[in-house]
């Protein structure tokens, strides 16, 4: 049951990325190009997603527990540390170079562009390296 739900929600998320245009790196890079071929569309993606999530999360968290799990698992940290600056800074540089963040990169995978086929394994390697480094420091 959980597997089917996850498949459907991944598909819904991916359809949102495709419909919004966020799955196209050209559109992402033009959004980030304030001084050139600026395309503000992605601000509307963010707006639509945050608006629905803002309302939906509040309604959902009135429940005692999720439908298929014993409890809600929400991040609780509120501290601002160096990792919270360095990580997103590196992420933003990579995002600006390739035009992909993780979700759109997966929606691009099956279309098989050579750049995607290099990007996705490199992204997974970077994720693995960050987890391994965090484990060693912990």
């Amino acid at each position: 049951m959980s597997v089917l739900v996850n498949l459907a929600l991944g598909l819904l998320f991916g359809l949102g990325l495709v419909l919004s245009g966020m799955s196209d790196p050209a559109k992402v890079l033009n959004f980030l190009d304030l001084a050139g071929s600026f395309d503000p569309s992605l601000a509307f993606v963010m707006g639509g997603a945050v608006l629905v999530a803002f309302i939906g999360f509040r309604l959902t968290l009135r429940r005692e527990r999720p439908v298929l799990a014993p409890r809600f698992q929400l991040p609780t940290r509120r501290d601002i540390d160096a990792r919270l600056i360095l990580g997103p800074a590196l992420f933003g540089i990579g995002w600006g170079l390739g035009g992909f963040c993780p979700g759109p990169a997966f929606t691009a995978l099956g279309l098989g562009a050579s750049g995607t086929l290099v990007f996705v394994p490199a992204m997974l390697a970077g994720m693995w390296a960050a987890r391994a480094l965090a484990e060693r420091r912990a």
Partner: peptide, 28 residues
């Protein structure tokens, strides 16, 4: 160049938000 697509982008964003809400609702 890419076309400015405020409506499709907003609706696509809403689907992304809906997926996030349903994942919280069902899986927590």
């Amino acid at each position: 160049l890419t076309d400015f697509t405020p409506v499709a982008s907003f609706l696509g964003g809403a689907l992304i938000g809906l997926s996030a809400v349903l994942l919280l609702l069902v899986e927590g």
